[in-house]
Design a binder for these strands. Sequence first.
DNA 1: CTGCATCAGGTGTCTTTGAACCCA
DNA 2: TTGGGTTCTTTGACACCTGATGCA
Length: 871
Amino acid sequence: MRGRRDSKKQKVSEDQVHVSGDAEKLQRTNQSGLSQKIPVKRHAASLGKSCGVAHSGVNRKQDVAEHEEGSEGDTPGEQYGGNGFPISMNMEEINDSDWEDGSAHASKYKGSDSEAFINGITVELNPLQDFSHRKIKRRASTEDKEVAELVHKVHLLCLLARGRIIDKACDDPLIQASLLSLVPAQLLKLSEIQKLTGVSLHPLISWFHSHFKVTRLSSEEKFFPSAMAQALEAKHGTLEEIAALSVALFRAMNLTARFVSLLDVVPLKPGVDKGDLPFKGAQGKAKGIFKNPTVMIDSFNPKPVSPAQPTLCSDKNNEDSKKLKSSNATNEINGFQELKRKGDAEYEMQMEMALSATAFEVSEDAVAAKATNDSFPSPTTLGRITTGLLPSSSSQPVATAVGASKIGAPLHWAEVYCSGENSIGKWVHVDAINGLLGGEERVEAAAAACKTSLRYVVAFAGYGAKDVTRRYCRRWYRIAPHRVNTPWWDEVLAPLKELESRATGGSIKLPFTNDSGLHQEMVVESSMKSEFVATGSILEDMELETRAFYEPLPTNQQAYRNHPLYALERWLTKYQVIHPKNPILGFCNGFPVYRRSCVQILKTKEKWMREGLQVRHNEFPAKVLKRIDKSVKEQLHEDDDSEETNSGGTIELFGKWQLEPLSLLHAVNGIVPKNDRGQVDVWSEKCLPHGTVHLKLPRIFALAKKLEIDYAPAMVGFEFRNGRSVPVYDGIVVCSEFKDILLEAYAEEKGRKETEERKRNEREVISRWYQLLSSIITRQRLNNCYGSRQPNSPGKVVTLTSGASNENLSTSQQHVEKMELEQHIAVSVSHSTEEHDHEHMFVTVKKCSLENGSLVTKRCQCGFSVQVEEI
DNA sequence: CTGCATCAGGTGTCTTTGAACCCA
DNA sequence: TTGGGTTCTTTGACACCTGATGCA
């Protein structure tokens, strides 16, 4: 509670900061010599309110509320509203939207408006406040999250595309040939080694490391192969270029090599780890994601520093190593000896337990790698690059602290396939820039030390790509939440993986000849290629997947919350249970750690039934929950003795291991088996009782009832309406034998209803026309008797002004009839008016019988006729 | 300074089976 | 009188996530 109270206090304080902060804006914008306080007080006086002067420690919102109340309808209030923001604007909105974005709004109040704005608000400056440290936190909305994810994905795709471009450049035959021409002859023998091992690569990497330097962090916007060629010529360039050159060299020497890139993508979640945003330091130049992530550190201290200390050139390391010793408590000279922190011992023990429990042996290589870890430089050492060639008068933005911390993050390196490693071969990490070999275990730590999160490590070859992050991370559970959803990523990589797989496996390399200095690459595709491709790729996949099994157990309980492999009982939800409770992989703070696969989801019988499953007989609930429900409470009050009520107060949950396929009831003698409510729950077709069908036709229940066929309403789900969830019904369930009868009857009934409806409409139309014509006749008679010379009557077409005449004439047939009648009436009336005083004498000419009477057609000698329906 | 444990609040998801009244 | 249709009113418990805080 204390913490909560404190946070509330802080909130008030923040409000005060807002006021003061805006006062600062006013101060900034009110450059015309106006005092900061005087106008404010003047306005306060004009309002006659004591709220005028803000008093430190008084809630600003209260002040503003009072202010609004007092200024309602007043001119000052209108000024306030008109200059700052509408007076009707909710102050909460103002808090949320306006105060936070100081720079944007500051400009809004410049000029003549500023004074009026100041008049409308009461502030007091607190010079002791440090506004630069004001931190306004806003919870990310769903939209923010979606946007962040989209940006993350786009950035990822851009970096993938970039990697492919670089990879393609590594295959450039000219660059490869040029590189080969530089390599000493004795090193070229490397290509002849049948069973290549990491160790055999040492001389080559050493040579490369001593000849090529990283001198820039960001590349110019230049076509990459050209930039690479220039770097080759100059023997220095960017990280990307030098790493790509190393890959090109390996490929030129007929080694199977990949260009590997750590994709430093913008965070997946909004507002997370903003310091790591690759483009943040670019001073808003909005070109970050398309450039090297370390672009913002272009012009850090140009003091010439020796290149990265290679493991293989250890004599260079001493001095820097000493610096390291003092600067990085976790590292020692080339030793990277981890500090023995609390929990490390437990970690080691758990690691062993996990390994034994998962029955996976740590390969000798892993042990060897661990052993060789001691020979790698620290992440900080990795960060050293040569910057002496940078112009001291660079106009590039000065590096930020955050950006600077990213210097030296391992972003690009190579992987060389060493067939001599293991019995099946192995991809070996080769960082020729830093002279590192087999240092995959170090990459994560080095990246972390340089504030670069290791989330995606992608290997490029053959214009394809493959995610090899697993190889470089030790704690996948930490990375996984920061990666994009797996299906999407897999889908993106699938075609690229195929390309990569084709390029890196299955080629048999013949001994090359080096005639007249020109390297002849002879690669003969083996007839077994496809088999090897599949095997090699799958083996690597297996290797990467297997790493998950010897991932160490986290030492903190929190890490088990969403750990993909391990689970603690305490983090289970109420609908989860551990089953079976073995093996125990280890302990965390005394709590047993289980496999995630042992976490079972529990559901009620009803829920399982919806999935076409039912609980086996004599199975006890895996878990029983107490239901705290209003209705149950009420029920308990009403009927304390009922056992049903007692059981209704709990929820019995069952696990998947207690289930069997749903055995549905059978319809017998045309009777549909129903539930307690006299209905059938049709969650899916699986839930339909045997021998029944679901007929989804409107009002078919009425027909079933009429035909005395047994049926049950089909409840297909629920919808929330009027504050409660109500069942949704769709059609009925009847026995299969009645299906055809019902459908036929339904069709027949439908036809009958349509006919009935049509006849009814016709009768209605006729009736209305009769009314119309009757009124016309009456009108005509009246005209004849009393107003035959009225100006608007003679010779005029009678228009259909009757309200009834326009209704029910929607069909085309009716429309035609109407038009015909109009003509008829027009002719008749016109004719009759020509006869002046003619009085119609109707003679019955036609009589036809109807259902409820007869239709009589009467015609006058003048040609005017009417139809009269006699009932 | 960092990482972890704990707590509390915000947010989103899942839950779920009327009753009164009118009218033909 | 009865059965069918319409209208009324607009949950709340809980899991999960996140930020704040204290502690080692």
